[in-house]
C-alpha cells in the first residue's frame, strides 16, 4: 500500500484505507442518525435550557414539524426511530473511536489535519478565503487547505464528540453512572438543545461539504475517497 503523498502518473495517494472506510461508514451512520433524529424531534419539537422543560415551560426554540421525506421512518413511529437511532449511534461512536485511534497512530492528525503556525496567520487565511471565492481549492502538494483543516478539526474534535456526550447525557440510566455529564452541560434539557445544535452543525457541514465536492470536481473527489488516489492536474470533473 502506498503511503500518503506518493505521486504516480499525475495522481497523488491521498486517503488511507482506514480514512476511506470510516468516511463511508460514518456517512451512512450520520445520515441515519440525522433523519431518525428528526422523528425524535417531532415527538416534542421544543428546546429548553436547564434541567427541566416541558409544555408549560418557556422554550427558546420551537421547531417545525419535519416532513416525512426527511425522517426515518417516513411515517411517525417514535419506537422505530429510536431503534434506528440507537443502533447507528453504536456504529457512529465506535467508528469515530477506531478512526481517531488509527489517525493518531498513523500520523493522519499530525500531518494532514493539524494547522501550522503559518497557516493560521490572518494574511494566509485571508488568501485562502479569496482562493475559495475564486473556486480554487487546489493546495500545493495536494494536502488540505487551512479552511478545510479548521472545518475538519471542528467536526472531528468538537461536533462529533459533543454529539456523543450530549446523547449520553439524555439517558436517565447513564445519569446514574456519570452524573458529572449533567453538570457539564447544565442540565438534561440543555444537553438536548446542544445535541440538536451540533446535529444542525453536522447537517450544515454535509451541505457545504457536498457543494464543495461538486465545485471541486465530483468524480475526482469521490473517486479519491473510494480508491485513495487524487488527480492533481485539476482538470478532471
Amino acid at each position: 500500500m502506498p503511503s500518503p503523498g506518493t505521486e504516480r502518473d499525475g495522481r497523488i495517494f491521498r486517503h488511507r484505507l482506514s480514512t476511506r472506510l470510516w468516511h463511508w461508514i460514518n456517512a451512512v451512520a450520520v445520515i441515519v442518525l440525522l433523519m431518525s433524529g428528526l422523528t425524535i424531534s417531532n415527538a416534542h419539537p421544543r428546546l429548553y435550557w436547564g434541567h427541566y422543560g416541558a409544555n408549560f415551560d418557556a422554550a427558546w426554540l420551537t421547531l417545525p414539524r419535519f416532513p416525512g421525506w426527511a425522517t426515518i421512518p417516513t411515517g411517525y413511529n417514535l419506537a422505530l426511530a429510536r431503534e434506528w437511532h440507537f443502533a447507528f449511534a453504536w456504529v457512529f461512536a465506535f467508528g469515530l473511536l477506531f478512526f481517531m485511534l488509527r489517525a493518531v497512530m498513523n500520523g493522519h492528525f499530525r500531518r494532514d489535519i493539524a494547522l501550522g503556525a503559518k497557516e493560521v496567520a490572518p494574511s494566509h487565511l485571508w488568501e485562502d478565503v479569496k482562493r475559495h471565492l475564486h473556486l480554487n481549492f487546489e493546495t500545493p502538494g495536494g494536502g488540505y487547505n487551512p479552511l478545510q483543516k479548521i472545518t475538519y478539526s471542528l467536526v472531528l474534535f468538537v461536533l462529533l464528540p459533543l454529539l456523543i456526550l450530549t446523547g449520553l447525557t439524555l439517558s436517565p440510566g447513564m445519569n446514574a453512572v456519570l452524573p458529572w455529564l449533567i453538570d457539564l452541560f447544565g442540565g438534561r434539557q440543555s444537553a438536548r438543545s446542544v445535541h440538536f445544535i451540533c446535529a444542525s452543525g453536522m447537517a450544515l457541514f454535509i451541505v457545504v461539504h457536498l457543494l464543495l465536492v461538486v465545485l471541486a470536481g465530483p468524480i475526482n473527489e469521490v473517486r479519491s475517497m473510494i480508491t485513495g488516489w487524487f488527480r492533481v492536474s485539476g482538470e478532471q470533473s
Partner: peptide
C-alpha cells in the same frame, strides 16, 4: 428527581 418522557421533555 427528574421525570424524563420518551418524547423528550423533562419535569422535576
Amino acid at each position: 428527581t427528574r421525570h424524563d418522557c420518551v418524547e423528550g421533555w423533562s419535569a422535576i
